[in-house]
Amino acid sequence: MSKPLSLVLVLFALLFALVGAMPLDLSARDVFVPKILYPHAGTVWKAGNHHNVTWDTSDAPVNITNTQGMVVFAKNGLMFTNQTGGLDDPLASGFSILLGRIEIQVPEVAPGDDYQVVLFGDSGNFSPKFTITN
């Protein structure tokens, strides 16, 4: 083997040894799936009114993967994707998931008893179904 090639191989071996010895900051991160407290089954909201969506933060882990929250609507178990209150136009976004509540304005939607709010942060969790009236 030629000396230049040997030198290159030794340098690569040293580089890999140094990189392998470097400490990595892989802090443990936990997924936080807080229970939605309000709205709950039996809740009736009127379109246009303001309400607080609330969730339980009492068991929040120390290291949460994503602390930025977003709230959207769902109907019949499916998130809106092209109406007010959907993924493209959330009811609220950019807040800390550790707040435990966020005020939203109920959009003008067809009345029904199969609405849910979905709270995103680490995960998307659905509230129980509730009613919206006009």
Results as ranks from 00 to 15, higher is better:
residue 45 W to Y: 13
residue 40 H to N: 14
residue 83 Q to K: 12
residue 24 L to C: 03
residue 42 G to W: 04
residue 65 T to D: 10
residue 61 P to D: 03
residue 45 W to C: 07
residue 82 N to A: 13
residue 39 P to Q: 10
residue 13 A to L: 13
residue 60 A to G: 09
residue 89 D to M: 06
residue 46 K to E: 14
residue 30 D to H: 07
residue 41 A to D: 12
residue 25 D to L: 08
residue 31 V to P: 00
residue 54 T to Q: 07
residue 20 G to S: 08
residue 89 D to I: 02
residue 46 K to A: 13
residue 69 G to N: 12
residue 95 F to M: 01
residue 79 M to K: 09
residue 47 A to V: 09
residue 60 A to Q: 14
residue 16 F to G: 00
residue 67 T to W: 08
residue 37 L to I: 13
residue 76 N to P: 02
residue 13 A to P: 01
residue 60 A to M: 14
residue 64 I to F: 11
residue 65 T to C: 05
residue 48 G to N: 06
residue 42 G to A: 09
residue 38 Y to N: 11
residue 32 F to R: 01
residue 60 A to Y: 07
residue 90 P to E: 06
residue 65 T to E: 14
residue 54 T to K: 04
residue 17 A to Y: 00
residue 66 N to F: 12
residue 95 F to K: 00
residue 18 L to K: 00
residue 93 S to L: 04
residue 87 L to N: 00
residue 69 G to F: 12
residue 46 K to Q: 13
residue 73 F to M: 15
residue 22 M to N: 00
residue 65 T to R: 09
residue 25 D to K: 06
residue 39 P to S: 08
residue 19 V to D: 01
residue 64 I to M: 13
residue 24 L to G: 02
residue 84 T to S: 11
residue 11 L to A: 15
residue 36 I to Y: 05
residue 16 F to N: 00
residue 49 N to W: 09
residue 88 D to A: 13
residue 22 M to Y: 09
residue 61 P to I: 05
residue 92 A to I: 03
residue 39 P to L: 11
residue 76 N to M: 07
residue 45 W to N: 11
residue 56 D to H: 08
residue 22 M to D: 01
residue 54 T to V: 09
residue 49 N to T: 15
residue 29 R to A: 10
